[in-house]
């Protein structure tokens, strides 16, 4: 399948990109890696007459590590994250999650901003952003704004990004020492869309009780979620297999689980419980230095 001929524009600055968006409105789409957009155009599931490639906008491809956390520029590719030697210590979940993203060739091109803007509920990065309480920096004609990831994803493939806005970066809060974490994803084949995935991390106080538990889920509902009930269950308790199982079971109980041709909602819910439990067990055995 071939998409109709279209214009391909290459702005050299963020301001120019925003100006082009303003100028062309709904006819234009931003291109940042194109690993979802290009197949959708070819399948004629999406259409536009102008593609604005962010590839030549300077400054968007940096990974910045400071004591305020990790900042990923929107043009950072999955491959850059895989290769970064700092991330396994300062944001270890990111390094774990990125291994599950699609396949080698796609990881060479797919980007942070592209994935966030696409907003696929089965994607790893949006889920990680929500689970970690990350914030998304956005630039538009009226200047900059930033939005918590939790407020960014609205429906499948629909986000809070306005048509004339560009994602600049994604900011993860600092990662303390001695934090426990786990990441579990299940898909039909390696690199496929997740049928379900679980992201967990927690800290423990001096009495070994769990504090600040975070449990994220993806591939399961219309948007990535945090499983608040499971978090509540864990808070203040000692880590252990019984409490993990109960937290997992409670956590998935009230989730509005979607069904598709690959799995009905009963299976997906049970699968998520399994993965949350396994991620918690994994977390209890894996603590960052």
């Amino acid at each position: 399948m071939k998409f109709p001929p279209l214009r391909y524009l290459t702005p050299q600055s963020l301001d120019e990109a925003i100006a082009l968006l303003e100028q062309h409105g709904a006819d234009a789409k931003l291109l940042s890696g194109g690993q979802s957009l290009m197949p959708m155009l070819a399948f004629r599931l999406a259409s536009c007459s102008i593609l604005i490639d962010l590839k030549f906008v300077p400054g968007l491809d940096r990974i910045t590590v400071t004591d305020r956390g990790v900042e990923l520029g929107s043009r950072v590719r999955w491959r850059d994250i895989e290769h970064d030697v700092r991330l396994p210590t300062v944001q270890p979940l990111l390094s774990m999650a990125v291994k599950h993203i699609a396949h080698y060739a796609i990881r060479n091109r797919g980007t942070v901003g592209g994935s966030l803007a696409h907003g696929d509920p089965a994607s790893e990065l949006p889920a990680l952003a929500v689970a970690c309480g990350a914030t998304i920096a956005i630039a538009g004609p009226n200047g900059r704004r930033s939005l918590p990831a939790e407020e960014f994803f609205l429906f499948p493939l629909i986000t809070a990004l306005e048509p004339n806005e560009v994602i600049v970066s994604l900011h993860f809060p600092p990662w303390p020492k001695a934090r426990s974490f786990g990441f579990q994803e299940f898909s039909r084949r390696r690199g496929d869309f997740a049928m379900a995935g679980a992201i967990v991390f927690f800290d423990q106080d001096k009495d070994q009780n769990i504090c600040s538990p975070h449990i994220g889920a993806f591939g399961i509902a219309d948007t990535p979620l945090r499983l608040g009930e499971a978090e509540k269950f864990l808070l203040g308790n000692r880590a252990g297999s019984r409490i993990f199982e109960e937290a997992a079971a409670h956590g998935v109980r009230n989730v509005d689980v979607r069904a598709d041709i690959h799995a009905d909602s009963d299976y997906r819910r049970a699968l998520l419980a399994t993965l949350v439990n396994r991620a918690l067990v994994e977390a209890a055995q894996r603590t960052s230095p």
């Binding site: 039909r188 049928m195 799995a263 009905d264 299976y267 699968l271």
Partner: peptide, 11 residues
């Protein structure tokens, strides 16, 4: 024999 199918048989 997909994962959901095996899981359902077990249930």
């Amino acid at each position: 024999l997909s994962p959901p199918q095996i899981w359902r048989l077990i249930q």
